[in-house]
Computed example of a mutant assay.
Amino acid sequence: MEIGPLLGSGRTADVYALDGTWVLRRYRDGIDTTGELAVMSYLAASGFPVPRIGPPADDALPTDLVVQRLTGPTLAEALLAGTVTEDEGADLLVRLLHELHAIPARLSQDPEDRVLHLDLHPENVILSPEGARVIGWLTAREGPPALDRAMTSLILAQVSLDPAVTAGARLRGLLAALLTRFAADGGVPADALARATALRAEDPRLTAHEATALDEAAGLVASLPGGGPAHFRR
């Protein structure tokens, strides 16, 4: 397959068309896709809704990953368009996390550990005609499910506090709905929120505002029902 036109660019990668079935995701900064490919292959074999993995492109690089070409809006786009409500979005995110955390860890010997996405937010959920598909597995690791719940909540809080985001109030509504549902699973414990905040602070791809707003975002999560102690501090 020959590499076609650029379809889009994110913080870490560029996506190119290959044909009607496959796209090439090429990471910048020398990021190797070996680990991500292994996680996605394991999850696909376990029945989790990840994009199908395709054959390597011609002259493939270690930074390349060929995956299914998905159609449909992201969950973020559907929320902004009003075709999905905050409650429906929260239900979907909770369902996806439940399905993910039902799968045993691939490597860890700790029976409590699971595969964690650690970047599961509305822009990483594609509402394809075949159903929701989860993308963006670069950050995946293994650990306690509470850490995944904490990270999803923290990311939503960060984005909702960004003055450049016009849908901040709607995202805070989504966050509140999500935390209410997380309460049934143990909520977002303070130690998980602290660990998620520390991990997020280490991300070199955060914008200046995102880095500055980390403590405020963690405080917002902690202040809502299901988010843990109301006076969390990192």
Rank of each mutant, 00 (worst) to 15 (best):
L175Y: 01
P204Y: 00
V23P: 01
T71I: 11
A194P: 08
F48W: 12
G8K: 08
T74L: 04
A45D: 12
D58E: 15
A146C: 08
I135A: 01
P49D: 10
A169N: 12
A140N: 03
V221W: 08
S153M: 10
A38N: 04
L178K: 02
D19K: 09
G20A: 13
A190L: 11
E99R: 15
T212A: 15
P49H: 12
L107S: 15
R233P: 03
V165S: 06
V66C: 03
P56M: 01
Q109F: 11
V188W: 07
E99C: 13
A196P: 00
A90S: 06
G219D: 03
E142A: 02
E202A: 15
T74D: 01
L93G: 05
A208I: 09
A150W: 04
W22I: 00
T85E: 03
G54E: 05
A45F: 07
A78M: 05
S223V: 06
D110C: 02
A140H: 01
P189N: 11
V188T: 09
A157W: 03
H117E: 08
A38H: 13
P49W: 11
A169I: 13
L61Y: 01
L37Y: 14
A57Y: 05
L193A: 07
G72M: 12
A60C: 07
E86P: 02
L161P: 06
T33S: 04
G35I: 01
L206E: 09
R205K: 13
A213D: 00
I126H: 12
L97T: 15
P73W: 05
L116W: 01
A76N: 13
T180N: 13
L220M: 10
D91S: 14
L174V: 08
L174R: 03
L174Q: 07
G131E: 09
V134P: 02
G168Q: 08
M151D: 07
N124V: 09
A198F: 09
A194H: 14
R195A: 15
V50Q: 00
T212V: 10
G186K: 04
T152A: 11
T21E: 15
R170N: 10
V67G: 00
G219K: 07
T33I: 01
L37H: 15
V94N: 05
L118I: 09
S160C: 08
A17S: 12
V125W: 04
T12P: 03
V159A: 12
A150Q: 04
V66K: 02
E77P: 04
A157K: 03
A167F: 13
D113L: 06
P62H: 00
L18P: 12
L107F: 13
S9W: 10
P229E: 06
R11Q: 14
E88G: 10
H98N: 14
Y27E: 05
L97R: 15
G187M: 09
D29R: 14
S128P: 04
L18K: 13
R141E: 14
G168R: 11
D91G: 10
L100N: 01
V50K: 01
A177Q: 08
R11G: 14
E112N: 14
A218T: 06
S128C: 05
R233S: 14
E88L: 09
L161M: 08
W137A: 02
A157P: 04
A132Q: 04
